[in-house]
């Protein structure tokens, strides 16, 4: 096993934070949305497809976290070609991981709560579907901000792009 320098080890922490925190938020959010959807489907079988859509929405935060974690692992030398990442870049990697992780935590839980409420609204009144999707999608923005900042930190923190 190749020796991992401190910068790369810090990037590994960043990768863990990214996927761990984002996954936690996404998982809790998805659990809440899924519990609501199961309740809706128990009463109305036609709700299955719409329940799946609302339940899938809080998945995106975990995808952002996963993507940042993979990029950090590839560009820090943990995966692929060996690379010695500077300590300062390693600190930037922790920042990138924390950005997408914490943003995903809040966004995922918020989106799950809204999705569960939207499922309840749709099962009560079918016309609420489009409006439910819009309200649920609003909580996505925080995760996008976190993802964008993570990418910028990686680019300008010397991890990606030279």
């Amino acid at each position: 096993m190749a020796e991992i320098v401190l910068g790369t080890a810090l990037a590994a922490i960043g990768a863990g934070l990214a996927v761990g925190m984002a996954g936690l938020g996404s998982g809790i959010g998805q659990g809440i949305a899924a519990a609501g959807s199961v309740g809706a489907v128990a009463e109305d079988e036609d709700m299955f497809a719409r329940g799946i859509i609302f339940t899938a929405l809080p998945e995106t935060q975990a995808i952002y976290g996963f993507l940042i974690a993979i990029l950090l692992m590839v560009f820090s030398g943990i995966m692929g070609a060996p690379k010695e990442l500077a300590v300062t870049s390693g600190l930037a990697a922790i920042g990138a991981g924390a950005a997408v992780g914490f943003a995903g935590l809040g966004s995922g839980m918020g989106q799950g709560i809204t999705a569960s409420s939207a499922v309840g609204a749709v099962v009560e009144n079918e016309d609420m579907f489009a409006r439910g999707i819009i309200f649920t999608a609003l909580s996505e923005t925080q995760a996008i901000y976190g993802f964008l900042i993570a990418i910028l930190l990686m680019v300008f923190g010397g991890i990606m792009g030279g």
């Binding site: 609501g36 199961v38 799950g112 569960s116 499922v119 609204a121 009560e124």
Partner: peptide, 17 residues
């Protein structure tokens, strides 16, 4: 969030009804 969790399933069912 966890305090809301136990109510999501029953609330979806009663809202459907």
């Amino acid at each position: 969030v966890l305090s809301m969790y136990p109510y999501t399933y029953p609330n979806a069912r009663v809202r459907a009804r």
